[in-house]
Design a protein around this nucleic acid. Sequence first.
DNA 1: CAATTACCTATTGACATAGTAGGTAAATGA
DNA 2: TCATTTACCTACTATGTCAATAGGTAATTG
Lengths: 136, 136
Amino acid sequence: MISTKGRYALRVMIDLAGQNTQSYTPLKDIAERQQISKKYLEIIVKELVTAKLLEGVSGKNGGYKLSKPAEDYSVGEILEATEGDLSVVACLSCGAEVCPRAEECETLPMWSEYNKMVHDFFYSKKLTDLVKNGQR
Amino acid sequence: MISTKGRYALRVMIDLAGQNTQSYTPLKDIAERQQISKKYLEIIVKELVTAKLLEGVSGKNGGYKLSKPAEDYSVGEILEATEGDLSVVACLSCGAEVCPRAEECETLPMWSEYNKMVHDFFYSKKLTDLVKNGQR
DNA sequence: CAATTACCTATTGACATAGTAGGTAAATGA
DNA sequence: TCATTTACCTACTATGTCAATAGGTAATTG
């Protein structure tokens, strides 16, 4: 289940993709437009900055902007920055210890297949695909 | 993320699919074969019985058995019985209140598409598909 | 009637989720 | 220089879920 964190992150990115690409947009404006608590967004946006998906600047006329062209973002990278690993089962997570039953596990092949499907879905989906859908 | 509950449920079902279809298999045996705490399995199996996927009988020679032929089970129905709704975002869950932003939501179409993909994946996957994979 | 089995209620510790509260640091414009 | 605006930082909290464990009762059979 995708949590609000990842979903809000996506909405922030979509919002920023619709703004002027040169100037910085204050979080306050985004929070108002998206109807999301600004305080909570601070946490989320911070993670996006850490992941280098956004740039932030303090002070008057400061705010956030995309760190690359909107069409270069996949939904997958945005979700992973906030939700962490997109793995669908624990034993396929990045840092997971190797399961001793892996060889004989009857369900592992299905989980791998599912994992790949989910990964491919979100990485082939681009941020700009969403903006277009919304404007229709 | 699929939790242990759903994953264990699936392994119980696979285990039972490999047993005699007429007799009842005690949970103790399944727990030993699958290396899962019997106490924890009790909770899971109970939900499978409630969902009519399994039949249980008390007493000597009692235990559990499938309530229909193995090939008639989809992975989806087993997961939903234990994990609850397979919905990938809160606003697409069964009993969710209608989101007031649904009309203008730029992300909803993608979540719907994702939801359908996940649903189709698990409902087209059959219990017997897994057993075959494991025996290979 | 004793053994075996399912079935039932309650509790626990650890962790995640979805925030809130109240500050400090940096940049700008007057 | 200084007030304002903004990001950035640390800490806290309430609620809920996960993954079990504990200790019973009820049903069935030999």
